[in-house]
Write a protein that binds this DNA or RNA. Structure first.
Lengths: 157, 157
DNA sequence: AGTGAAAAACAATGGCG
DNA sequence: CGCCATTGTTTTTCACT
């Protein structure tokens, strides 16, 4: 579904992606609209899928998740079946936060978050590498994260 | 502040990061706890910083953001001042969703989301490369995103 | 397009077992 | 920690412009 977004919508979305705990009244103040209109627009944006959902942003450290890694994967035998199995596995792995196919020499880029380096090693050796489709894996550990907000750029950010 | 998380907390956090729109009563049903207890635990987790905040997850396509890229950056002259400037710029750029320092041959890995390839090219040529600290930039475009949820692995790890 | 107010739903406390 | 009641807030719907 494609929706035409006006200035109010964009400002509303920007505010909500920054802080979804804002009440409709507070949002109304920010974007100069009444609470009832905010409610109506919000419902529309949710129904249209522009707003996919609401999430609590958690602190990985507090949960003992100290290692973030970017793992580049190249596939070997490009059989459709093996590739499909690889994709399904990746989608099902909770440690994989993101998975993309890339241009360039890498086939897949995974972002993985785990408790420690041992857990990362286990994932690579026991889950990734045994896959028939997987030819090579190369991982880089994030030493420091400057920014992690994953906020989309919406004009007024 | 470090907090001891029990099984209820972990389940609560897992449910909330998946869907922060759930009411306390609904959460209580999921984790087998009364709504009032859910409310109390939630406040504690928010205060302790385990819950950093609440965010609306938006659909990039619906907002005209069609290009996701991973940009590897190597710094040249490692003067402290230049590196500091680079870091501040990156933090301030709304198109940069994530920025990490990495092990391996790359100094920085940026995840960038923009409307189109032209916008990406503009960012690289007009913002990144003119920085004194920046020696080399290498970008990979995400052709397909299999997974993008950025949900932390809780319990199932 | 928008507003404002009433009704319904919900959150947050406190007391008690 | 469950349960219940209360109070205050918030959302949503309706009438209206």
């Amino acid at each position: 579904m494609t929706v035409a977004l006006d200035g109010f919508d964009v400002k509303l979305l920007a505010a909500l992606q920054d802080n979804a705990a804002l009440t409709n009244a507070e949002l109304g103040e920010i974007i100069s609209l009444s609470a009832s209109q905010v409610s109506r627009r919000r419902s529309k944006l949710e129904e249209a899928g522009v707003i996919r959902g609401y999430r609590a942003a958690l602190d990985p450290e507090a949960l003992g998740l100290t290692v973030t890694a970017f793992v580049g994967v190249t596939l070997g035998a490009h059989s459709k079946e093996n590739a499909r199995k690889f994709r399904n596995m990746v989608k099902a792995m909770p440690e994989v936060q993101e998975a993309h196919t890339l241009t360039g020499d890498l086939d897949y880029m995974l972002k993985i978050v785990v408790a420690d380096l041992k857990a990362l090693s286990n994932i690579i050796n026991d889950e990734l590498l045994p896959q028939e489709a997987v030819h090579h894996v190369r991982s880089s550990i994030a030493m420091e994260t400057l920014k992690d907000d994953n906020l989309l750029p919406l004009g007024s950010s």
